Deep mutational scan, measured.
Amino acid sequence: NQESVVAAVLIPINTALTVGMMTTRVVSPTGIPAEDIPRLISMQVNQVVPMGTTLMPDMVKGYAP
Rank of each mutant, 00 (worst) to 15 (best):
N14W: 15
V27D: 15
D58T: 14
D36A: 11
G62M: 06
T30L: 14
M22Q: 01
M22E: 02
T30P: 14
G31S: 04
D58Y: 10
P12N: 14
V45A: 11
P65N: 09
S28Y: 08
L10I: 15
R25K: 13
E3P: 04
M51G: 06
S28I: 09
I37A: 12
S42D: 08
L55V: 14
M51A: 12
P65R: 10
P12W: 06
V60L: 08
Q44A: 14
T18D: 14
V60R: 00
G31K: 02
Q44M: 09
A64K: 14
S28C: 13
Q44F: 10
M51N: 13
V45R: 00
M22A: 02
P65T: 06
L55Y: 00
E35P: 10
P38Q: 13
A64L: 08
M56H: 09
G52F: 10
N14V: 03
Q44H: 14
Q47C: 03
N14K: 15
E3D: 10
N1Y: 03
I41F: 04
V9P: 00
A7H: 01
R25E: 15
I11Y: 01
G62N: 15
L17W: 01
P38M: 13
A8Y: 07
M56W: 05
A34H: 15
V49D: 01
A64R: 10
R25V: 11
A34P: 14
E35Q: 06
M22L: 13
V26C: 05
P33G: 07
P50N: 14
V27I: 08
M43G: 12
M22F: 13
V19G: 08
R39N: 07
V19C: 07
R39P: 02
I37D: 00
G62A: 15
N1F: 04
V60W: 01
A16S: 07
L55H: 00
T30A: 13
I41S: 05
M43Y: 11
L40G: 00
V6W: 02
Q47Y: 12
K61A: 11
P57M: 05
T24K: 13
D58A: 12
N46T: 13
T23A: 06
V45P: 02
P29T: 07
N46L: 08
T53G: 05
G52K: 06
S28K: 03
L10R: 07
D36Y: 09
R25I: 04
G62Y: 10
E3W: 03
G20L: 11
M43K: 13
T24G: 12
S42Q: 12
